[in-house]
Computed example of a mutant assay.
Amino acid sequence: MLTAIKILSVRLLGACMVMLIVAVLVFSLVHLASGDPIAVLLGDQATASDIAQVRALYGLDQPLPAQFFIWLRQVLHGNLGTSIFLQQPVAEVLLSRAEPTLLLAFFSVAIATLIGVPCGALAAVWRGSRTDQLVSAVAMLAASVPSFWMGLILIRVFAVQMGWFPASGYGPPDAGLAQRMYHLALPSIVLGVLNSALIIRFTRASMLDTLGEDYVRTARAKGLPETAIMVRHVMKNALIPIVTVIGLTTALMIGGTVVTETVFNLPGVGGLVVRAVLRRDYPVIQGALLVVAFIYVLINFFIDFLYTVIDPRIRLHK
């Protein structure tokens, strides 16, 4: 018990170090980029005196190390700062845009998993067959298709021509979960289908490695049904790489839905970050990237915990 607590503490400390490094990199890259948010905010008619006055108001006239430690102290107190252009706390701005991004990410991961795991398993079971070749070809094609192109195709076919789904938007402000899902159907299919390619390949490779193990041949020699062998022995022991890629796909979805949100005009975090970059809204950019990095770390930590649940032979001290 003490060993597990100790290792857990070490991993938490490692996660904190990762977040500190991310904070330094995010702050440095954002502030070293060209452009002045105050000049953009005040417009072309602003004088140098006006710009200097507003820069002092936001603390942008101080040296970068001083600005970093002021921002880091605010973050440690749960304050991500205030948006220069929106004049709202960054945490509130991100929270107001989080729902579309999170729902889109989780629906897309669900679709990718439902497609990727069964298809990868079938390709592994029937290795070298036409089914395997077809699944592998489709996976390669899905990995090569740009998300914006597929999104436009689905909008044209299923929204414009057939009228089955809305072409864009997130529904009225008082819409329920069912209506939100209806609006997220097409973008979720786009991301789910395209990201299922990686899950297919990992599932196939992991199951092929497991199919060659001695205990699988022993189970077959004992006369166990093939379905039981696949479920109890092959799939169960091949889950760790599959869980890993699903977890990483979830993190990538949360941080990488910018293009899809733009195509479908979703009011998510992606569009907010793009506009913040164009305006040089430092607090929003820093806060969004820091939150996404924290989600990455949290998901990786959760994946490590799932390893011990899936395979009891794996312990924290290993």
Rank of each mutant, 00 (worst) to 15 (best):
P172L: 13
L224I: 02
L154V: 03
R275E: 12
D209E: 15
I189G: 05
L194S: 07
W149T: 01
V269Y: 06
R217H: 15
A251F: 06
G171A: 04
Q179D: 13
L194E: 05
R180G: 05
Y170V: 01
I229F: 14
S196P: 00
M207Y: 02
G268H: 14
G169H: 14
L184A: 04
V243I: 09
H183Q: 08
V273Q: 04
M253R: 08
Y182H: 12
R279K: 01
E213K: 12
I155Q: 14
R156E: 13
A219W: 07
A167F: 06
A175V: 10
M150D: 03
M162S: 05
L252K: 00
M162F: 15
G171E: 07
E261K: 08
E213I: 01
I199L: 13
A221C: 12
V245L: 14
G270W: 13
R279W: 01
R217E: 15
Q179T: 12
A167K: 04
R204L: 08
K222E: 12
G256E: 09
V243F: 15
L198C: 04
R180M: 15
R279S: 07
D174P: 00
G247H: 10
R156M: 14
I153D: 06
V258Y: 09
G163Q: 09
V157C: 04
K236Y: 01
P283G: 07
G247M: 14
R275M: 02
R232L: 11
L211V: 09
L152C: 04
G270M: 07
R217P: 02
P267D: 05
V277P: 01
T210G: 03
R280E: 01
R204Y: 11
G268A: 14
Y170P: 00
I240S: 11
V160L: 15
L194V: 11
L208Y: 09
D281Q: 03
L152V: 06
I285R: 04
L266K: 07
R201G: 05
V269P: 05
I285D: 01
Q161P: 01
G176W: 14
R279T: 00
R180N: 11
L252Q: 02
T249M: 06
F158A: 13
L211G: 08
V274Y: 13
S188R: 10
V245N: 08
M235K: 08
P172C: 08
M162E: 12
A221Y: 10
F202G: 01
R279H: 03
I240C: 03
R232N: 12
H233N: 10
I246S: 13
N265F: 06
R280Y: 02
V263E: 08
V245I: 15
E226Y: 01
A185H: 02
L278A: 11
T227P: 00
V258C: 05
L152Y: 09
T262G: 06
D281I: 00
F165G: 02
D209S: 11
V243P: 02
R180K: 15
L278H: 07
M150W: 07
D209V: 00
P267N: 07
T249L: 02
G192Q: 10
I242A: 03
M235L: 15
